[in-house]
Design a protein around this nucleic acid. Structure first.
Lengths: 192, 192
DNA sequence: CATTTAAGCGGAGGCTAACTCCGTTTAGCG
DNA sequence: CGCTAAACGGAGTTAGCCTCCGCTTAAATG
Protein backbone atom coordinates (compact mmCIF):
# COMPACT_ATOMS: atom_id res chain seq x y z
CA UNK A 1 0.00 0.00 0.00
CA UNK A 2 1.36 3.35 -1.02
CA UNK A 3 2.25 5.84 1.69
CA UNK A 4 -0.21 8.49 0.52
CA UNK A 5 -2.98 5.94 0.33
CA UNK A 6 -2.30 4.84 3.87
CA UNK A 7 -2.29 8.41 5.07
CA UNK A 8 -5.64 9.08 3.43
CA UNK A 9 -7.11 5.92 4.84
CA UNK A 10 -6.12 6.85 8.37
CA UNK A 11 -7.42 10.36 7.93
CA UNK A 12 -10.76 9.04 6.68
CA UNK A 13 -11.22 6.67 9.59
CA UNK A 14 -10.37 9.43 12.01
CA UNK A 15 -12.85 11.87 10.49
CA UNK A 16 -15.51 9.16 10.17
CA UNK A 17 -15.18 8.33 13.85
CA UNK A 18 -15.95 11.88 14.86
CA UNK A 19 -18.68 12.32 12.24
CA UNK A 20 -20.40 9.14 13.42
CA UNK A 21 -20.19 10.36 16.97
CA UNK A 22 -21.84 13.66 16.09
CA UNK A 23 -24.39 12.74 13.44
CA UNK A 24 -24.76 9.00 13.76
CA UNK A 25 -23.77 6.28 11.40
CA UNK A 26 -25.97 7.49 8.56
CA UNK A 27 -24.11 10.75 8.16
CA UNK A 28 -23.18 11.89 4.65
CA UNK A 29 -20.15 10.16 3.20
CA UNK A 30 -19.48 13.13 0.96
CA UNK A 31 -19.15 15.27 4.05
CA UNK A 32 -16.65 12.85 5.56
CA UNK A 33 -14.56 12.90 2.38
CA UNK A 34 -14.67 16.67 2.32
CA UNK A 35 -13.58 17.00 5.93
CA UNK A 36 -10.81 14.50 5.39
CA UNK A 37 -9.64 16.58 2.46
CA UNK A 38 -9.95 13.78 -0.09
CA UNK A 39 -12.20 13.25 -3.09
CA UNK A 40 -15.31 11.17 -2.76
CA UNK A 41 -13.78 8.69 -5.20
CA UNK A 42 -10.95 8.03 -2.79
CA UNK A 43 -13.33 7.24 0.01
CA UNK A 44 -15.29 4.82 -2.14
CA UNK A 45 -12.16 3.09 -3.45
CA UNK A 46 -11.02 2.32 0.06
CA UNK A 47 -14.44 1.70 1.58
CA UNK A 48 -16.81 0.52 -1.15
CA UNK A 49 -19.71 0.28 1.25
CA UNK A 50 -20.61 2.39 4.25
CA UNK A 51 -20.31 -0.71 6.33
CA UNK A 52 -16.64 -1.06 5.48
CA UNK A 53 -15.98 2.33 6.98
CA UNK A 54 -18.01 1.49 10.06
CA UNK A 55 -16.07 -1.74 10.42
CA UNK A 56 -12.76 0.13 10.23
CA UNK A 57 -13.87 2.60 12.87
CA UNK A 58 -15.01 -0.16 15.21
CA UNK A 59 -12.21 -2.64 14.67
CA UNK A 60 -10.10 -2.23 17.78
CA UNK A 61 -13.04 -1.45 19.98
CA UNK A 62 -14.71 -4.74 19.18
CA UNK A 63 -11.46 -6.63 19.46
CA UNK A 64 -11.20 -5.43 23.03
CA UNK A 65 -14.73 -6.59 23.67
CA UNK A 66 -13.75 -10.04 22.48
CA UNK A 67 -10.68 -10.07 24.70
CA UNK A 68 -12.80 -8.99 27.58
CA UNK A 69 -15.14 -11.93 27.06
CA UNK A 70 -12.13 -14.20 27.07
CA UNK A 71 -10.86 -12.75 30.32
CA UNK A 72 -14.25 -13.06 31.96
CA UNK A 73 -14.53 -16.66 30.84
CA UNK A 74 -11.22 -17.44 32.46
CA UNK A 75 -11.39 -15.41 35.64
CA UNK A 76 -15.00 -15.48 36.71
CA UNK A 77 -16.17 -18.58 38.47
CA UNK A 78 -19.82 -17.66 38.11
CA UNK A 79 -20.81 -18.21 34.49
CA UNK A 80 -24.05 -16.32 34.92
CA UNK A 81 -22.39 -13.25 36.40
CA UNK A 82 -19.71 -13.31 33.70
CA UNK A 83 -22.23 -13.31 30.88
CA UNK A 84 -24.33 -10.68 32.58
CA UNK A 85 -21.38 -8.38 33.00
CA UNK A 86 -20.27 -8.88 29.45
CA UNK A 87 -23.71 -8.23 27.97
CA UNK A 88 -23.78 -4.97 29.86
CA UNK A 89 -20.55 -3.97 28.17
CA UNK A 90 -21.94 -5.10 24.85
CA UNK A 91 -24.99 -2.88 24.92
CA UNK A 92 -22.83 0.04 25.96
CA UNK A 93 -20.59 -0.54 22.96
CA UNK A 94 -23.57 -0.83 20.67
CA UNK A 95 -24.78 2.55 21.81
CA UNK A 96 -21.73 4.65 20.96
CA UNK A 97 -23.02 5.84 17.59
CA UNK A 98 -26.63 6.50 16.76
CA UNK A 99 -27.78 3.84 14.34
CA UNK A 100 -25.01 1.41 15.13
CA UNK A 101 -27.26 -1.06 16.90
CA UNK A 102 -29.24 -1.56 13.72
CA UNK A 103 -26.15 -1.93 11.57
CA UNK A 104 -24.86 -4.56 13.96
CA UNK A 105 -28.16 -6.38 13.90
CA UNK A 106 -27.78 -6.46 10.15
CA UNK A 107 -24.18 -7.62 10.29
CA UNK A 108 -24.64 -10.51 12.67
CA UNK A 109 -26.77 -12.24 10.07
CA UNK A 110 -24.16 -11.94 7.37
CA UNK A 111 -20.53 -12.39 8.19
CA UNK A 112 -19.54 -12.06 4.55
CA UNK A 113 -19.50 -8.30 5.04
CA UNK A 114 -16.67 -6.32 6.60
CA UNK A 115 -18.70 -5.40 9.63
CA UNK A 116 -19.76 -9.00 9.99
CA UNK A 117 -16.10 -9.99 10.09
CA UNK A 118 -15.34 -7.34 12.65
CA UNK A 119 -18.14 -8.66 14.83
CA UNK A 120 -17.13 -12.25 14.35
CA UNK A 121 -14.43 -12.56 16.99
CA UNK A 122 -16.54 -10.68 19.43
CA UNK A 123 -19.48 -12.96 18.64
CA UNK A 124 -17.39 -16.09 19.00
CA UNK A 125 -16.16 -15.00 22.39
CA UNK A 126 -19.68 -14.11 23.45
CA UNK A 127 -20.97 -17.43 22.20
CA UNK A 128 -18.43 -19.27 24.32
CA UNK A 129 -19.47 -17.25 27.33
CA UNK A 130 -23.13 -18.05 26.73
CA UNK A 131 -22.48 -21.74 26.13
CA UNK A 132 -20.47 -21.93 29.30
CA UNK A 133 -23.47 -20.59 31.14
CA UNK A 134 -25.69 -23.11 29.39
CA UNK A 135 -23.42 -26.00 30.33
CA UNK A 136 -23.49 -24.75 33.89
CA UNK A 137 -27.29 -25.01 33.67
CA UNK A 138 -27.60 -21.30 34.32
CA UNK A 139 -29.19 -20.46 30.98
CA UNK A 140 -31.77 -22.21 28.87
CA UNK A 141 -30.18 -23.96 25.95
CA UNK A 142 -32.76 -23.44 23.21
CA UNK A 143 -31.50 -19.90 22.69
CA UNK A 144 -28.38 -19.11 20.71
CA UNK A 145 -26.10 -16.13 20.74
CA UNK A 146 -27.66 -14.53 17.68
CA UNK A 147 -30.94 -14.45 19.56
CA UNK A 148 -29.32 -12.66 22.44
CA UNK A 149 -27.62 -10.19 20.12
CA UNK A 150 -30.93 -9.48 18.42
CA UNK A 151 -32.61 -8.67 21.70
CA UNK A 152 -29.72 -6.49 22.84
CA UNK A 153 -29.77 -4.60 19.58
CA UNK A 154 -33.47 -4.06 20.11
CA UNK A 155 -32.83 -2.59 23.53
CA UNK A 156 -30.24 -0.15 22.24
CA UNK A 157 -32.43 0.87 19.31
CA UNK A 158 -35.21 1.68 21.74
CA UNK A 159 -32.92 3.92 23.75
CA UNK A 160 -31.75 5.72 20.63
CA UNK A 161 -35.27 6.28 19.41
CA UNK A 162 -36.42 7.60 22.76
CA UNK A 163 -33.44 9.91 22.93
CA UNK A 164 -34.45 11.58 19.67
CA UNK A 165 -37.82 12.55 21.09
CA UNK A 166 -38.73 15.49 23.33
CA UNK A 167 -38.25 14.85 27.02
CA UNK A 168 -41.74 15.98 27.90
CA UNK A 169 -43.71 13.79 25.53
CA UNK A 170 -45.25 11.86 28.39
CA UNK A 171 -43.23 8.76 27.67
CA UNK A 172 -40.81 7.84 30.46
CA UNK A 173 -37.15 7.39 29.51
CA UNK A 174 -35.98 3.94 28.47
CA UNK A 175 -33.62 2.22 30.88
CA UNK A 176 -31.39 -0.18 28.95
CA UNK A 177 -30.20 -1.90 32.09
CA UNK A 178 -33.72 -2.69 33.16
CA UNK A 179 -34.52 -4.12 29.74
CA UNK A 180 -31.33 -6.12 29.79
CA UNK A 181 -32.34 -7.49 33.16
CA UNK A 182 -35.65 -8.64 31.70
CA UNK A 183 -33.86 -10.40 28.88
CA UNK A 184 -31.36 -12.04 31.21
CA UNK A 185 -34.08 -13.26 33.51
CA UNK A 186 -35.84 -14.72 30.53
CA UNK A 187 -32.65 -16.46 29.56
CA UNK A 188 -32.13 -18.10 32.93
CA UNK A 189 -33.43 -21.49 33.82
CA UNK A 190 -36.36 -20.94 36.13
CA UNK A 191 -36.41 -24.23 37.90
CA UNK A 192 -32.89 -23.76 39.19
CA UNK B 1 -63.96 17.19 2.14
CA UNK B 2 -64.61 17.27 -1.55
CA UNK B 3 -65.70 14.07 -3.27
CA UNK B 4 -62.70 13.94 -5.60
CA UNK B 5 -60.34 14.48 -2.70
CA UNK B 6 -61.91 11.64 -0.79
CA UNK B 7 -61.70 9.37 -3.80
CA UNK B 8 -58.03 10.14 -4.25
CA UNK B 9 -57.34 9.60 -0.59
CA UNK B 10 -58.93 6.18 -0.63
CA UNK B 11 -57.12 5.25 -3.78
CA UNK B 12 -53.79 6.29 -2.26
CA UNK B 13 -54.30 4.27 0.91
CA UNK B 14 -55.28 1.28 -1.14
CA UNK B 15 -52.22 1.48 -3.38
CA UNK B 16 -49.95 2.22 -0.43
CA UNK B 17 -51.18 -0.87 1.36
CA UNK B 18 -50.16 -3.11 -1.50
CA UNK B 19 -46.90 -1.27 -2.14
CA UNK B 20 -45.94 -1.61 1.52
CA UNK B 21 -46.72 -5.29 1.37
CA UNK B 22 -44.49 -5.80 -1.63
CA UNK B 23 -41.59 -3.43 -1.05
CA UNK B 24 -41.82 -2.57 2.62
CA UNK B 25 -42.64 0.66 4.29
CA UNK B 26 -39.72 2.55 2.76
CA UNK B 27 -40.99 2.17 -0.77
CA UNK B 28 -40.98 5.21 -3.04
CA UNK B 29 -43.83 7.62 -2.46
CA UNK B 30 -43.62 8.85 -6.03
CA UNK B 31 -44.29 5.33 -7.18
CA UNK B 32 -47.36 5.13 -4.97
CA UNK B 33 -48.68 8.40 -6.36
CA UNK B 34 -48.04 7.23 -9.89
CA UNK B 35 -49.83 3.94 -9.36
CA UNK B 36 -52.74 5.71 -7.71
CA UNK B 37 -52.97 7.96 -10.76
CA UNK B 38 -52.49 11.18 -8.81
CA UNK B 39 -49.75 13.78 -8.75
CA UNK B 40 -47.08 13.65 -6.10
CA UNK B 41 -48.32 16.96 -4.79
CA UNK B 42 -51.68 15.42 -4.03
CA UNK B 43 -50.10 12.68 -2.02
CA UNK B 44 -48.06 15.16 0.03
CA UNK B 45 -51.02 17.44 0.65
CA UNK B 46 -53.00 14.60 2.15
CA UNK B 47 -50.11 12.82 3.85
CA UNK B 48 -47.39 15.36 4.61
CA UNK B 49 -45.14 12.73 6.13
CA UNK B 50 -44.65 9.11 5.21
CA UNK B 51 -45.84 8.22 8.66
CA UNK B 52 -49.23 9.74 8.00
CA UNK B 53 -49.74 7.35 5.13
CA UNK B 54 -48.58 4.42 7.22
CA UNK B 55 -50.97 5.44 9.94
CA UNK B 56 -53.87 5.56 7.48
CA UNK B 57 -53.02 2.11 6.16
CA UNK B 58 -52.82 0.62 9.64
CA UNK B 59 -55.77 2.39 11.22
CA UNK B 60 -58.41 -0.30 11.26
CA UNK B 61 -55.93 -3.08 11.77
CA UNK B 62 -54.66 -1.54 14.98
CA UNK B 63 -58.13 -0.69 16.12
CA UNK B 64 -58.98 -4.37 15.95
CA UNK B 65 -55.90 -5.17 17.95
CA UNK B 66 -57.09 -2.80 20.65
CA UNK B 67 -60.53 -4.39 20.64
CA UNK B 68 -58.95 -7.77 20.90
CA UNK B 69 -57.03 -6.70 24.00
CA UNK B 70 -60.27 -5.51 25.48
CA UNK B 71 -61.98 -8.81 24.78
CA UNK B 72 -59.11 -10.78 26.25
CA UNK B 73 -59.14 -8.64 29.35
CA UNK B 74 -62.81 -9.38 29.84
CA UNK B 75 -62.99 -13.03 28.88
CA UNK B 76 -59.76 -14.57 30.01
CA UNK B 77 -59.46 -15.41 33.66
CA UNK B 78 -55.72 -15.94 33.46
CA UNK B 79 -54.07 -12.54 33.15
CA UNK B 80 -50.74 -14.06 32.19
CA UNK B 81 -52.22 -16.15 29.40
CA UNK B 82 -54.22 -13.20 28.13
CA UNK B 83 -51.20 -10.94 27.86
CA UNK B 84 -49.14 -13.71 26.32
CA UNK B 85 -51.73 -14.37 23.67
CA UNK B 86 -52.12 -10.70 22.90
CA UNK B 87 -48.38 -10.08 22.59
CA UNK B 88 -48.22 -12.89 20.10
CA UNK B 89 -50.83 -11.13 18.02
CA UNK B 90 -48.95 -7.88 18.43
CA UNK B 91 -45.69 -9.14 17.00
CA UNK B 92 -47.55 -10.71 14.13
CA UNK B 93 -49.17 -7.38 13.34
CA UNK B 94 -45.84 -5.60 13.57
CA UNK B 95 -44.43 -7.95 11.00
CA UNK B 96 -46.90 -7.38 8.17
CA UNK B 97 -44.76 -4.81 6.34
CA UNK B 98 -40.99 -4.84 6.22
CA UNK B 99 -39.73 -1.89 8.24
CA UNK B 100 -42.92 -1.40 10.18
CA UNK B 101 -41.48 -2.60 13.47
CA UNK B 102 -38.97 0.23 13.43
CA UNK B 103 -41.56 2.82 12.52
CA UNK B 104 -43.70 1.65 15.39
CA UNK B 105 -40.76 1.77 17.77
CA UNK B 106 -40.34 5.36 16.68
CA UNK B 107 -44.02 6.15 17.06
CA UNK B 108 -44.53 4.80 20.54
CA UNK B 109 -42.15 7.43 21.85
CA UNK B 110 -44.03 10.28 20.28
CA UNK B 111 -47.79 10.24 20.18
CA UNK B 112 -47.89 13.67 18.61
CA UNK B 113 -47.49 12.01 15.22
CA UNK B 114 -50.26 10.39 13.24
CA UNK B 115 -48.83 6.93 13.67
CA UNK B 116 -48.42 7.59 17.37
CA UNK B 117 -52.11 8.42 17.56
CA UNK B 118 -53.01 5.29 15.65
CA UNK B 119 -50.99 3.23 18.09
CA UNK B 120 -52.41 5.00 21.10
CA UNK B 121 -55.62 3.07 21.56
CA UNK B 122 -53.84 -0.16 20.95
CA UNK B 123 -51.18 0.84 23.46
CA UNK B 124 -53.74 1.83 26.06
CA UNK B 125 -55.49 -1.50 25.73
CA UNK B 126 -52.18 -3.32 25.96
CA UNK B 127 -51.18 -1.30 28.98
CA UNK B 128 -54.37 -2.29 30.75
CA UNK B 129 -53.70 -5.92 29.95
CA UNK B 130 -50.16 -5.68 31.30
CA UNK B 131 -51.22 -3.85 34.43
CA UNK B 132 -53.86 -6.42 35.09
CA UNK B 133 -51.14 -9.04 35.00
CA UNK B 134 -49.02 -6.95 37.31
CA UNK B 135 -51.85 -6.54 39.80
CA UNK B 136 -52.34 -10.31 39.67
CA UNK B 137 -48.68 -10.60 40.66
CA UNK B 138 -47.95 -12.44 37.45
CA UNK B 139 -45.57 -9.82 36.02
CA UNK B 140 -42.91 -7.68 37.61
CA UNK B 141 -44.10 -4.14 38.07
CA UNK B 142 -40.94 -2.15 37.34
CA UNK B 143 -41.53 -2.62 33.63
CA UNK B 144 -43.99 -0.52 31.67
CA UNK B 145 -45.75 -1.15 28.41
CA UNK B 146 -43.33 0.94 26.36
CA UNK B 147 -40.56 -1.34 27.52
CA UNK B 148 -42.48 -4.36 26.32
CA UNK B 149 -43.23 -2.72 22.99
CA UNK B 150 -39.57 -1.88 22.55
CA UNK B 151 -38.53 -5.46 23.09
CA UNK B 152 -41.24 -6.77 20.77
CA UNK B 153 -40.22 -4.35 18.07
CA UNK B 154 -36.65 -5.59 18.50
CA UNK B 155 -37.78 -9.16 17.97
CA UNK B 156 -39.63 -8.35 14.77
CA UNK B 157 -36.75 -6.26 13.43
CA UNK B 158 -34.45 -9.22 13.97
CA UNK B 159 -36.74 -11.48 11.97
CA UNK B 160 -36.93 -8.96 9.15
CA UNK B 161 -33.19 -8.53 9.01
CA UNK B 162 -32.58 -12.24 9.00
CA UNK B 163 -35.11 -12.73 6.24
CA UNK B 164 -33.20 -10.39 3.96
CA UNK B 165 -30.09 -12.51 4.18
CA UNK B 166 -29.23 -15.70 2.28
CA UNK B 167 -30.57 -18.86 3.86
CA UNK B 168 -27.21 -20.60 3.76
CA UNK B 169 -25.14 -17.98 5.55
CA UNK B 170 -24.57 -20.27 8.50
CA UNK B 171 -26.86 -18.28 10.74
CA UNK B 172 -29.93 -20.19 11.89
CA UNK B 173 -33.33 -18.61 11.26
CA UNK B 174 -34.78 -16.35 13.92
CA UNK B 175 -37.83 -17.68 15.73
CA UNK B 176 -39.95 -14.77 16.94
CA UNK B 177 -42.03 -16.97 19.23
CA UNK B 178 -38.95 -18.26 21.00
CA UNK B 179 -37.69 -14.74 21.52
CA UNK B 180 -41.09 -13.65 22.74
CA UNK B 181 -41.03 -16.51 25.19
CA UNK B 182 -37.70 -15.29 26.54
CA UNK B 183 -39.10 -11.80 27.00
CA UNK B 184 -42.26 -13.09 28.68
CA UNK B 185 -40.30 -15.26 31.06
CA UNK B 186 -38.19 -12.26 31.92
CA UNK B 187 -41.33 -10.31 32.60
CA UNK B 188 -42.81 -12.86 34.98
CA UNK B 189 -42.27 -12.81 38.68
CA UNK B 190 -39.82 -15.61 39.43
CA UNK B 191 -40.68 -16.22 43.05
CA UNK B 192 -44.27 -17.00 42.17
C1' DC C 1 19.07 10.32 -11.64
C1' DA C 2 15.79 9.39 -15.29
C1' DT C 3 12.29 6.45 -16.72
C1' DT C 4 8.42 3.84 -16.24
C1' DT C 5 4.08 2.30 -14.60
C1' DA C 6 0.73 0.82 -11.70
C1' DA C 7 -1.43 2.62 -7.85
C1' DG C 8 -3.88 6.28 -6.45
C1' DC C 9 -6.51 10.56 -6.91
C1' DG C 10 -10.61 13.53 -7.48
C1' DG C 11 -14.67 15.34 -8.88
C1' DA C 12 -17.94 15.73 -12.69
C1' DG C 13 -21.98 13.52 -13.76
C1' DG C 14 -25.82 10.33 -13.61
C1' DC C 15 -29.31 8.61 -10.71
C1' DT C 16 -33.06 8.28 -7.40
C1' DA C 17 -36.18 9.95 -4.20
C1' DA C 18 -37.82 13.55 -1.11
C1' DC C 19 -40.26 17.56 -0.79
C1' DT C 20 -41.99 22.45 -2.35
C1' DC C 21 -44.33 25.76 -4.95
C1' DC C 22 -47.54 27.77 -7.77
C1' DG C 23 -50.32 28.23 -11.94
C1' DT C 24 -54.39 25.61 -13.46
C1' DT C 25 -58.61 23.03 -12.84
C1' DT C 26 -62.95 21.84 -10.82
C1' DA C 27 -66.57 20.52 -7.31
C1' DG C 28 -70.38 22.07 -5.59
C1' DC C 29 -72.81 26.01 -3.32
C1' DG C 30 -75.98 29.87 -3.79
C1' DC D 1 -74.76 29.58 -14.16
C1' DG D 2 -71.12 31.80 -12.03
C1' DC D 3 -68.07 32.01 -8.35
C1' DT D 4 -64.58 30.60 -5.29
C1' DA D 5 -62.20 27.89 -2.22
C1' DA D 6 -60.48 23.49 -2.45
C1' DA D 7 -57.88 20.42 -4.87
C1' DC D 8 -54.74 19.10 -8.47
C1' DG D 9 -50.30 18.03 -10.70
C1' DG D 10 -45.85 18.08 -12.03
C1' DA D 11 -41.80 20.86 -12.89
C1' DG D 12 -38.10 22.21 -10.18
C1' DT D 13 -34.96 22.15 -6.25
C1' DT D 14 -32.16 19.70 -3.12
C1' DA D 15 -29.40 16.04 -1.26
C1' DG D 16 -26.90 12.10 -1.15
C1' DC D 17 -25.23 7.75 -3.38
C1' DC D 18 -22.16 5.84 -6.38
C1' DT D 19 -19.45 5.27 -10.92
C1' DC D 20 -16.29 6.31 -14.23
C1' DC D 21 -12.25 7.88 -16.28
C1' DG D 22 -8.54 11.15 -17.36
C1' DC D 23 -4.80 13.06 -14.62
C1' DT D 24 -1.12 12.66 -10.99
C1' DT D 25 2.51 10.65 -8.40
C1' DA D 26 5.01 7.25 -5.40
C1' DA D 27 8.38 4.37 -5.71
C1' DA D 28 10.57 0.51 -8.20
C1' DT D 29 14.06 -0.25 -11.67
C1' DG D 30 18.22 0.22 -14.55
Amino acid sequence: MRADALRNRERLVEVAQSAFATHGIETSLEEIARQAGVGIGTLYRRFPRREDLIAAVLAERYLKLAECAQTLAECREDADAAFTEWLTLLIEHMAIYRGLSLAVKEAIHDQSTALGQTCKEMMDAGTRLLERGQRAEAFRSDVNFWDVMSLCSGIVTAVERRAEKPVDSGVPPVNPYLLLDVVLRGLRKQDA
